[in-house]
Design a protein around this nucleic acid. Sequence first.
DNA 1: CATGCCCAGAACGTAGGGTTATGCCAGGTG
DNA 2: CACCTGGCATAACCCTACGTTCTGGGCATG
Lengths: 300, 300
Amino acid sequence: MRLRYIELFHAVLTTGSITGAAKLLDISQPAASKALQHAEDKLGFALFSRVRGRLQPTQQALLLRDRIEKIIQDVNELQRLTTNMGQPGNCPLRVTCTPTLALALLPTATVLLRKSFPDVTVELSTQHSAAMCESLTLRETDIGLTLQDTGHQILRQRVLCRGPVMVIAPPAWWPESELAQPLPIGALANQAMIGITVRDALGNMLQSHLAKVEPAPHIAVSVQTYQLAHSLVAKGEGLALVDPFTARCGDAKSVQRRPLKPHLDVVLYAMHRPDNPLNPVQKRFLDLVRQLAQRMLTQR
Amino acid sequence: MRLRYIELFHAVLTTGSITGAAKLLDISQPAASKALQHAEDKLGFALFSRVRGRLQPTQQALLLRDRIEKIIQDVNELQRLTTNMGQPGNCPLRVTCTPTLALALLPTATVLLRKSFPDVTVELSTQHSAAMCESLTLRETDIGLTLQDTGHQILRQRVLCRGPVMVIAPPAWWPESELAQPLPIGALANQAMIGITVRDALGNMLQSHLAKVEPAPHIAVSVQTYQLAHSLVAKGEGLALVDPFTARCGDAKSVQRRPLKPHLDVVLYAMHRPDNPLNPVQKRFLDLVRQLAQRMLTQR
DNA sequence: CATGCCCAGAACGTAGGGTTATGCCAGGTG
DNA sequence: CACCTGGCATAACCCTACGTTCTGGGCATG
């Protein structure tokens, strides 16, 4: 069984036609056609029945599909891993963080880092936690920043700092005098709010706490990223519960913010592979992120 | 990433040398050598360091190893599956059973079957339960017979019949008059016995019951297959606890047998894939096996 | 020092996989 | 009906990737 055939089979199955498969594999249509025939008579049975000029997967093909897709996926992962193992350490800092943290922490931290190491090259990207773990193990990135405890078996995950869940509101929502005090969750009763539909630990925690408020807040708009919640709040669509980094993000007057009472803990984690210890640049970067985060959480 | 390279990498890693790998892949040594170089410069890093003319896997190679082996295995399984899907149903009866059952049931059942269907072709094989499940899903065989509840998610497993655990002893061990009565497990105290080290449900059950006997039986010889236990008992090495099929196996005078008291249940299961229902030959065969088994268990 | 083992290079042959050009068939449409 | 379009297969051709054999060099071992 040639890998080519496996790829081809997969391509035909996903695109639904030989022509489509050929485009996907970047070969000519006759090449794909011939290869498929070749595969079929090596196998000894038809993978597709040609009915009225079109292809239709046979019974056998469907039986093979799952295994094939599995192999394709594994090979693709291997591919990603090997390409990322090629250039070892020429880029001393490759960081991925969740969209939530991207704007709040990365830009400033990067600028500060380049004051200490002006020549260093930096690669930044954003990914959700699951994809982040994958990228880390496949060596596409070296450091991951997330608010979620992934419980990953192999990757090291360490706490950088902790902060409270915050309530954000449109400008001039609360009197200046109250801003320093936590807002009791009961005060959200019957309020217009932006819902958070993130399916991670933090999102679940927020939802379960909100669910207890009586009478329930009015949630007309739900969003999947805290950033969007922030923007909507700034435009006056309602209040929102967000992590402290999103709350501090952007220009100071765009939203008002107060800690929530009861205090709900948000943890900022850094993740990396256990095998190679962090280089000085990476250590410095994490140090900066931690300082930055703590300053964001304590001041104001 | 060519599949060839993956296979080659695997072959080199397992054999430890390019020459060995070449033999394994059935190509010449220079071909393997060149292919490995090719792979390495496609990857961009060395997989093996040539030290004093020998190969030694690099750090990176070790990181890839697990994924590679996984893919190799998956592809091999696919291979097995496809080769068995080629010839559909020209062989209406392919049966696999555990070694325990092989001699007791298969020969007679097969002979009886061929009286009803003289032209049918039959393929028999023996495998342990785990391998049996694999063979069934990979369509290398159609029916599996085992004494173990595999709990397999996809395969159908049905009960054919049940019987008691038996004690077997050398000829003339017990007076004829006692043979019909069960032997209390306490009677095994201080006896010479053949140990069973099978690591399946039945084996565990037997061992745990034996462990309670005081004073403990003397176990000088332990075996992994019930057949061997049977032979050893026949030669006078001691008593043994076995499934009722092994107990009945072979010529009637080779061993004496009595049910154990307390009654321990042994279940004979038939397994098959759920997708295609059994054909008449297969149904008839299972019927014969069931009748045969029941007759073996009840008579005498 | 001879021997055996293993790896790598050179020279060479072939087939598999790629290409373009073309034809056929089915279905949709003016 | 005539015509176009989209999809698959065939034919003829090309080339490189992979195989071969032969050879030589490095390194252990008796």
